[in-house]
């Protein structure tokens, strides 16, 4: 079971009111320079296929129900990674009237990748660490 997570991860990218910077960097991971498909990491179009949810942005009140529903739709076990400062801690948006708290108050977060925005290298390092940890769990 866990073995499936150590080879090729299917990643679903869910953006919750981001500034799009993390999202561009996530797409940048797919572009030729970083090309994460080498490691078998692939973005998928439906949460039902996803092993990992990459969530970016400060969750606002219009999105919060949708992100919860999205998580419900994923096949479990599914790992949630909070990408960027907004998802990890909301940075300056914590005082806003329209945000609902950092991501870990809404979904069970397995991993945090901080940065504004984190570089693609940091994201790859994060995902690889997740894979290694899962391998360790198997032993």
């Amino acid at each position: 079971m866990v073995n499936a997570f150590t080879q090729s991860l299917f990643v679903f990218h869910a953006a919750c009111s981001p500034c799009n910077n993390c999202d561009i960097e996530i797409l940048d991971m797919l572009a030729p320079r970083h090309d994460v498909e080498r490691f078998g990491i692939q973005l998928v179009g439906s949460p039902r296929h996803a092993d990992v949810l990459l969530v970016s942005g400060a969750v606002n009140k219009k999105v919060v129900h949708r992100i919860k529903r999205l998580y419900e739709q994923t096949a479990k076990p599914c790992f949630v990674i909070a990408v960027g400062g907004c998802a990890c801690s909301e940075i300056l948006f914590r005082d806003s009237y329209n945000t609902c708290g950092p991501l870990d108050t809404i979904l069970p977060v397995d991993m945090y990748i901080p940065g504004c925005p984190p570089k693609p290298e940091a994201m790859i390092a994060g995902i690889v660490k997740l894979m290694e940890k899962l391998k360790g769990k198997k032993k």
Binding site: S17, P18, C19, G57, A58, N60, K62, V63, I91, L92, F93, D95, S96, Y97, N98, T99, C116
Partner: peptide, 24 residues
């Protein structure tokens, strides 16, 4: 879906901070 209320937040930031706030 992306509304984070920056206009209101900016009213609570001083002018130096505002430059970095609007960047977000």
């Amino acid at each position: 879906y992306n509304h984070r209320g920056i206009e209101k937040l900016s009213e609570a930031k001083n002018f130096e901070q505002g430059v970095y706030a609007v960047e977000r």
